[in-house]
């Protein structure tokens, strides 16, 4: 079980303030975005993740269920859980456009007198709020 290389190695950050299940979801999405996880790759079994991270099985279950709900993964009985869609293509196209609007925003922030730390703080807290809003929805 330990010797096989897994398509993705989960990790948990105690200090991030983000709940464990959300961290798992984010790590899968990040890997998909950056192309480390491709269509057809098999995710580690729930038991493997639990055993590696010493994490509550319900947490893994919830994370996988949400990813399944988002249409990113699919569990096939008797075989395992597999990636059925990536996020790479969808986002790559809009990267340039988004980068441009982000630069505009940064210019606005600088004009308003925010230094780098304030910019980061604002982005971080707004991002958190945004994610939370998604969660409730």
């Amino acid at each position: 079980m330990e010797s096989e290389k897994q398509a993705i190695e989960f990790y948990l950050d105690n200090r991030s303030g983000v709940s464990p299940y959300l961290q798992l979801v984010q790590q899968v999405k990040q890997a998909l975005r950056l192309g480390f996880l491709k269509k057809g790759d098999q995710l580690p079994t729930m038991r493997m993740v639990v055993s590696r991270l010493a994490i509550n099985p319900n947490t893994v279950f919830k994370a996988y269920r949400e990813l399944e709900h988002d249409g990113l993964i699919e569990s096939r009985p008797g075989q395992g859980t597999f990636v059925i869609r990536t996020l790479a293509d969808a986002s790559l196209a809009s990267h340039d456009e988004l980068r441009r609007s982000l630069l505009d925003w940064l210019r606005e922030a600088e004009a308003a007198g925010l230094d780098e730390e304030s910019v980061r703080a604002l982005i971080a807290s707004t991002l958190q709020q945004f994610q939370k809003r998604e969660q409730i929805a």
Binding site: R47, V50, A54
Partner: peptide, 14 residues
């Protein structure tokens, strides 16, 4: 401590 928790969570999963 970590290894203990691993064993425990594995048993819960199983």
């Amino acid at each position: 401590r970590y290894e203990f928790q691993q064993t425990l969570m594995d048993a819960v999963a199983q």
